[in-house]
Design a protein around this nucleic acid. Sequence first.
DNA 1: GTGAAAGCGCTAACAT
DNA 2: ATGTTAGCGCTTTCAC
Lengths: 334, 334
Amino acid sequence: MSSIHDVARRCGVSTATVSRALRGLPNVSPRTRQLVQSAAAELGYVASPAAAGLSSGRNRAVAIVVPSMARWFTTEVVEGADRALRAEGYDAFLVGLEVGQNGRERLFTDSLLRKRADAVIALGIDFTPDERRELRSLALPAVVVGGPVAGVRTVGIDDVAAVRLAMGHLLALGHTRIAHVGGEDEWGMDLTVALLRRREWRAALERRGLPAPDDRFRSGGFLMPMAKRAALALLGGTERPTAVFAGSDEMAFGVLLAARDLGLRVPEDLSVVGIDDHAWSASFDLTTVRQDPEAQGGAAARMVLDELSGVPAQAPMQRSPVSLVVRGTTGPPG
Amino acid sequence: MSSIHDVARRCGVSTATVSRALRGLPNVSPRTRQLVQSAAAELGYVASPAAAGLSSGRNRAVAIVVPSMARWFTTEVVEGADRALRAEGYDAFLVGLEVGQNGRERLFTDSLLRKRADAVIALGIDFTPDERRELRSLALPAVVVGGPVAGVRTVGIDDVAAVRLAMGHLLALGHTRIAHVGGEDEWGMDLTVALLRRREWRAALERRGLPAPDDRFRSGGFLMPMAKRAALALLGGTERPTAVFAGSDEMAFGVLLAARDLGLRVPEDLSVVGIDDHAWSASFDLTTVRQDPEAQGGAAARMVLDELSGVPAQAPMQRSPVSLVVRGTTGPPG
DNA sequence: GTGAAAGCGCTAACAT
DNA sequence: ATGTTAGCGCTTTCAC
């Protein structure tokens, strides 16, 4: 594996010149740069990140902290971030959070991440105060995707607006008994988002003078199977709701499966709306509020990249657009 | 951020001793080791991966190459691998493949991966001959998860056995018109797995003297929405199959949604069986052949870790178990 | 069992 | 525009 010396020797220049030429720094004659570049290409030379990192203090790597990979939102964000990072020659390190297994507290102290990453992108996480303090003490650029976290820059949607879109749609159709399957207090999940959506569900109802009794909410943990169970309970009782607003499309799928099991027709007996526009939502014919997590991941990557290259930090919160997508799971109450 | 010198000074020993003590090397008195360990803990010292990597040639990092994050199999494998890697103090970094956008060819040459990773774990990928050659020329330990690839060690299930389990079940129930929704020639996908499963579907039928006409196979691209479309075509015609064997659970979900849209009752009008036992399969009440990709990811991690620590390479192919899980989507033909 | 010293392959001043 | 010289923070001989 060739080193910078091989390239330097081959061109009859110093290693410093090679370094400058390859990194696009000024003060290299076009001719020399050309020479160096082709020599590097021929030798298949790539600077060792370890050596470069050691001497420059830059690792060209960012850590992506995820509570759980197995969610559509997560994979989309990770893909978007990875792509944007790679485009700038950065690598993305994964840091799984092992929620509830007390791996969390040790994250920032024990992990190699500390010295390996130039920045961190964290997903939908409600950091504990300790973690937040540690994060700051690392003095690394950081951004959170998918949930407002005090003191850290954020990219995400306007959750209030998203819920209003969904609820406004159901209310306009004439629904009055609208239940909510949402998230709640999962370990490591960002409860902020769940709470915001739940609160706005209630507020939307109350603004119309409609009741939002506690038993019309059930936690679906942002997981489809759990949401299905929640919906089974919700729809099994008396005074059945005519519509369900799910806090995510995955949970909405669970509601749909529950409705099918109960023999309820959609949308005649039950309307369902979610948030996300998951890749499968069209197949479920699900009405939903679209967001673009891949774009959010890309935006987050660009934010930390900018910060690393000295661009003054933008607004502390970047809003990604949402829009209502009406499909077949919603209609007037039967 | 404290360095090895701080720890050495604090203990009145040399940096060499600190290094030895912390890494559990021999020739350190228990007393000294104890001293060093607590000093390191107090200072919150962690060796800089860049420096350690530079001098030792070991980065304590492995690359995970994925064609697409957005598949259940992928996320499970990645989580399993990440966990096993982290347990040994290794970091995992992601390399997305950007299928079809000609990012593939440049993977091994341009990427930092070359010098940053000690090993690579690749998922369900059918490497091109070029890539395979490059991979070897890196001389890094490598293992592929989820599809036999010539010349690279592999962990995965016995695909033939898995298909026989699924098909045996349908045949035992008395089905004779069994269609297949599978994978085919996607860019970057491992066609080997898709082909193996398709071939065995056909073989299972033919062993019983049953026909397996070409139009009873449709490509679902290992994606749910595409599988739904395939199933719609498959089930819409005359001489409708009484059962569908899907090459993955995600594709099976698509078949189930298609059946619902067509007003077919499951399992009375149509039986469906998949492969995976996806986290959502129980909610769909799907009969399937279970595999454990998270365990496979862990196994892959342990294979490369072993190889890195000089343990002689085991068998070139490690088989992960499969088992039939009978649920409600299969029954005798109506 | 422990220390001294020589790098690992780069980048960043500082010269020229 | 280019070269020289120090390190960056570790690991690793090789002495002791």
